[in-house]
Design a protein around this nucleic acid. Structure first.
Lengths: 226, 226
DNA sequence: CATCGCCTTCACGAGTCCTTCACAAGCGTC
DNA sequence: GACGCTTGTGAAGGACTCGTGAAGGCGATG
């Protein structure tokens, strides 16, 4: 079951698109402006975002930029402007496809499907990650070790998710900060240690002897991939 | 500095694409047929490949198939055929994006950038060095000799990595210090010997008769390149 | 406005690792 | 084969890194 976030300031369009997408089997969430879109993206973690570039207030391109600080979710852009420049900028910012107004809802659905198929193939944004007997469900914001659910704060969850996207790979504290905060300040780096400590207390059977969250001395941390 | 391999049999297109990509800051390598593309891919290890599916001789899809036997490099496909089937097959074979002719060079550049950003984020193309039966995985910070994992400290790892980047080349102690510490102080140079000793103890079957970490008397050390 | 939860910071202890030192062994040259 | 210089090696001290509990601060919540 895939979730699509639709962002448009025109209610008519939102409703139309919602209908078609729901009929195609998607769960649809909508927002009508930039801040709302970002909030919705954080909360609902959609599998794809349909974004109208012609939003009032915050510019659509800025929305993508902000979005990219915390999510690689694919974006399909809708634009009234037909100038190639805009499309290019959109694509450079990580948009995955675009449509120009007026567009047919059918075509939108087709593009959404195509983009999802593409990004799936690229292995992006899987909704559930399994690392050993650890299960990280991004959509549900849930972590389980075997059958037991583990309660994490959002920062802990984001940290675990970042490591889980590439199990086995070592991450420096700076990289982890970037993953959970968007920016990396050297002074905050020891905060990572605190989160790791708390994570271990919650998900390691024996926090003294970590099985999942491993320390790489002098470098950083990694999530065991066995 | 990213390298892009462009494969097309039409010289006009190759030249056009080359110009645009170079202007965008890429190093461009070209090939005009399937075998040439595979050879170039092996040799230059491009960060991305732009591939025209309508090649004479070897079919474009076969090129991707062969390519996939030795490299996970992202591929952007160009096709004159608009049938979805072809595109799908291409995507299933690991192509990361596609364009249909005629396409605008600007859009191609944008797609190349988008794909590189995506695959970077997904952490594809892990940096792995293979020297003899020694495997050095930078991202995972792991070294294996054949199947057995070898546990190294971060300094030992950095040292081995520095040598591994140019197997066979001799490095002075000063150069090695620079590689692992950023600066080179003459007084510390004997510390290198200590690290070499520890490295040998960990990864040489017989530390007395080094097979990998060789001494070049009066000069420094090198990593055997056989 | 008070409370709560969470993130960050601090300080200290524990552990690991790097460098140094001293001496033995090896290499190259004469 | 002897000499000087380079390299190998074990041990030890000290520097750095990490783990951890506690406390401050901030925003969210009611």
């Amino acid at each position: 079951m895939r979730t699509v976030l639709v962002v448009d300031d025109e209610l008519k369009i939102t409703r139309l698109v919602r209908d078609y997408l729901e009929q195609a089997g998607f769960v649809v969430v909508t927002a009508s402006d930039g801040p709302g879109a970002l909030a919705a993206a954080r909360q609902t973690k959609p599998d794809l975002i349909v974004l109208d570039l012609g939003l009032p207030g915050l510019d659509g391109l800025d929305v993508i930029r902000s979005l990219r600080t915390f999510s690689p979710v694919p974006v399909v852009v809708i634009t009234a402007r037909t100038e190639e420049a805009d499309r290019i900028v959109g694509l450079e910012l990580g948009a995955d496809d675009y449509l120009t107004k007026p567009f047919s809802p059918k075509e939108l659905v087709a593009r959404v499907r195509a983009v999802l198929r593409r990004t799936d193939a690229a292995g992006l944004a899987p909704e559930v990650m399994v690392v050993g007997d650890l299960t990280i469900d991004i959509l549900r914001h849930e972590v389980r070790r075997g059958p037991v659910a583990i309660d994490l704060t959002s920062t802990e969850f984001d940290l675990l998710t970042a490591l889980g996207r590439q199990p086995g790979r070592v991450f420096t504290r700076g990289q982890m900060l970037e993953a959970i905060r968007g920016v990396s300040f050297p002074s905050y780096e020891r905060a990572i240690d605190a989160h790791v400590k708390n994570l271990r207390r919650k998900l390691e059977p024996d926090p003294r002897r970590p099985r999942y969250l491993l320390t790489v001395h002098g470098v950083g941390y990694k999530l065991a991939d066995a």
